[in-house]
Design a protein around this nucleic acid. Sequence first.
RNA 1: UGCCCGGUAGAGUAAUUGGCAACUCAGGGGACUUUGGAUCCCCUGUUGGAGGUUCGAGUCCUCCCCGGGCAGCCA
Length: 583
Amino acid sequence: MLKLGNGNKQKNEKNTVTTTVTPPSNFIREIIDQDLRTNKYGGRVHTRFPPEPNGYLHIGHAKSICLNFGLAAEYGGWCNLRFDDTNPSKEEIEYVNSIIEDVRWLGFDWGDRLFYTSDYFEQLYQYAVQLIKKGKAYVCDLSPEQIKEYRGTLTEPGKESPYRNRSVEENLDLFQRMRAGEFEDGSRVLRAKIDMASGNLNMRDPVIYRILHATHHRTGDKWCIYPMYDFAHCLSDSIEGITHSICTLEFEDHRPLYDWFLDELNVHHPRQIEFARLNLSYTVLSKRKLLELVEGGYVTGWDDPRMPTISGLRRRGYTPESIRNFCERIGVAKRDSIVDIALLEHSIREDLNKRAPRVMGVLHPLKVIIDNYPEDQVEELEAINNPEDPTMGTRKVPFSRILYIERDDFRENPPKKFFRLAPGREVRLRYAYYITCVGVVKDENTGEVVELHCTYDPETRGGWAPDGRKVKGTLHWVSAPHALEAEVRLYDRLFTKENPCAEKNVDFKTYLNPNSLVVLTSCRVEPSLADAAPGSRYQFERQGYFCVDSVDSTKEKLVFNRIVPLRDSWAKIEKAQKQQKSA
RNA sequence: UGCCCGGUAGAGUAAUUGGCAACUCAGGGGACUUUGGAUCCCCUGUUGGAGGUUCGAGUCCUCCCCGGGCAGCCA
């Protein structure tokens, strides 16, 4: 008998997701292709994303979301969103809401197929009763400690519970009274009767129902017994008519148990496929560790832009497209691996290069006075919004006698291959003029360069010299009297070590990067940014991609998050030069 | 020392299922350039080991080595 879930009767909402990367084949697609060829599920492909609402989603979940929703879209099937809410002591509505928001933001749509395992509590209870009636489940009065003791170890078999052979009638009565609330938490459980000597611990009479007098965020106080994950999960998949239950590797050992439940109950039997969860270099991806960072105040919250959470990446400025492309690129397999975070960074650069408007912003301002530029003159110079996309048009940028340039763009004693400004050197100011440095003003006490004097060549307006002479460097700049002051938050990798969890006896927090956030408070950006909307993304030319912080930025005080820096080949040259010197 | 899974360039994945080991990222070099960005071109480097089957093995077989997971009334 094949029981089809209610999901099958409901209408499909097509996903609108696109990726620019051609998906390579993988072992899951092969399995589905095979099932389609053999008509195993009547040609259907129905997946689900089944989070537990006990934390925020992270990039590792994005992999699973993209897989499940992606496969469904690709094969013209469906993907359900189902909350695995079987443990009211850990789950909260706040998490439910954040998960819904995140999955939607990633660009996926579950139509009217939003489900909760708690929707099935009554049905699940009836399944348990069926097992009891078949003599395949029993109420056990052993304490938690005793159950552990009786379970045996990895290498030794367990022993049978003295309550294992209670009569069906007694079990039915006891289970009903468990539901009725007659017993204390922990006093009794319902167990499957399988094999205490199995090499697979999951088969040693696993607990399938426990007593928990806790208020559930959806069912309130209706229940005081709750099904265990192993029991609830496989049967929820079955109820929904899921064809391919895609999950992570650690559930491989549970599959025989799921097979046992499904076969004993003789219900629709999804095919479970396990894949390796995502690991990313220089970060951690476990709810427990992320929670530790949040609760310990190491970050400002779940949406701290340094966090690998979906909400953190969103606030940082990552786009859903870039995350989807990343997930496509990393592929899916069964071996554990650590993906280089550079791949994530590449994905966002690739996306934003095509889409982000260019703008000029000076992070570490150095004042420049153009000695031969008329005192009160202001010119509006034309700048291209995105050289990758002419349809994005142009804008006007004001130019005047006093400017700011990047402090790094000037060297009093320029090293080899330094193409930027130095005493006597001529460079181009982007979209403006060629300027030549004619004077350096330093602080008398510290020796710090505080101001540069330059002359400009009026013939080079727009950045071209009529005599054809070339300059090697092009600098970004802002007009001092017109510039907007802004705060810029420079984010870097959260950890200094590729795998912060590699050593079992060293706390991963030891490797937290002390420079993962550097706040710059007196940056100057061009005036076109005055009305920049929260969340909008820009390329600050020659620097990187930045996003208006959606929480802290105001019209009065702009705050930008650095999403990712541009690739910086000068930094590499300089680093190599320094290494050469010290060698 | 029980059960399960896995091992392909530095990283992540492919390989028409037994037929020239490739793609992306990273790294190196070059071209081009009003972003030292982007783009384009080139390069470095790979089937854990030993046997076996075969005309032919990353793929099939045997043994070994290495890595991961499992003893919640968590998921």
